[in-house]
């Protein structure tokens, strides 16, 4: 009789532990404090020499953007991911470049532009662009026309030297519509060719609205599990202006 009781108690404990474990694994714990985060960055990438966390920005339930400052007064970006048991620093970069974080790869509405620039920079605004070249095709007498697409989003850096910009709804709508009407989506021809050709570009502007070149080109970085797109610059001649 006694034995049976113990057996039940044991089973109960096992179930309880399993439940707690499942719960803990499923939902991310609260984000670690600054000291732990700085140590985490420096452990993963000692060259970063992080000294101070500037903020923690949620981009999804399991992913955070953490901008930081370094001992040499440089500015860096770190991407943190909940791996089921703990928060881990994945990609780390110390530079002045904004990047596009593909938070959930292939799902453009989750993408975020991320940046962390020196607050003393002369750059006042970032202009992000989604571009698709105007094009046409004639094959087997069938004509197709692809309108030129140029969408712009402006970020003001005067009140936030670091931050994120979620992919604007219009942009992801356009990208999804390209995806959904991609030619040859059938079992015989897999889509090895022609992924939709949209480009992300950017301009850095000062208070006078002039293009600013980066004083600190390059930078150092540590690659992790996350997909980041470098955003090339575009000059004014590469953009279209409407007829007045």
């Amino acid at each position: 009789m006694m034995k049976k009781k113990w057996l039940w108690a044991g089973a109960g404990v096992v179930v309880l532990v399993a439940l707690v474990y499942l719960f803990l694994v499923k939902s991310p714990s609260s984000f670690p404090n600054e000291k732990v985060v700085v140590a985490g960055i420096n452990n993963a990438f000692p060259e970063a020499k992080a000294s101070e966390v500037q903020g923690v920005i949620e981009v999804s339930e399991t992913k955070r953007f953490v901008p930081f400052r370094t001992e040499q007064n440089l500015y860096g970006k770190s991407l943190w991911v909940w791996n089921g048991a703990e928060w881990k620093a994945e990609n780390i970069r110390v530079d002045q470049e904004p990047e596009l974080w593909e938070v959930e790869r292939g799902k453009s509405s989750t993408y975020h532009f991320i940046w962390n620039v020196d607050p003393d920079t002369t750059i006042e605004t970032f202009e992000f662009y989604l571009l698709r070249d105007r094009n046409y095709r004639v094959s087997d007498g069938v004509k197709t026309y692809m309108p030129g697409v140029q969408m712009k989003k402006v970020v003001d850096l005067t009140d936030q030297s670091y931050g994120v910009l979620k992919m604007p709804e219009e942009w992801s709508y356009f990208m999804d519509s390209l995806e959904n009407t991609m030619p040859n989506r059938n079992p015989l021809f897999s889509s090895v060719f022609s992924s939709p050709t949209v480009e992300f570009r950017m301009r850095r502007l000062n208070a006078e609205g002039e293009s600013v070149r980066l004083s600190l080109p390059g930078g150092i970085g540590y690659g992790g599990s996350e997909y980041l797109q470098f955003i090339p610059g575009v000059d004014e001649r590469g953009l279209e202006k409407p007829v007045e």
Partner: peptide, 10 residues
């Protein structure tokens, strides 16, 4: 729900 998104500055 139809609306026209601007995909070009013109």
């Amino acid at each position: 729900q139809a609306e026209a998104l601007h995909v070009h500055p013109s």
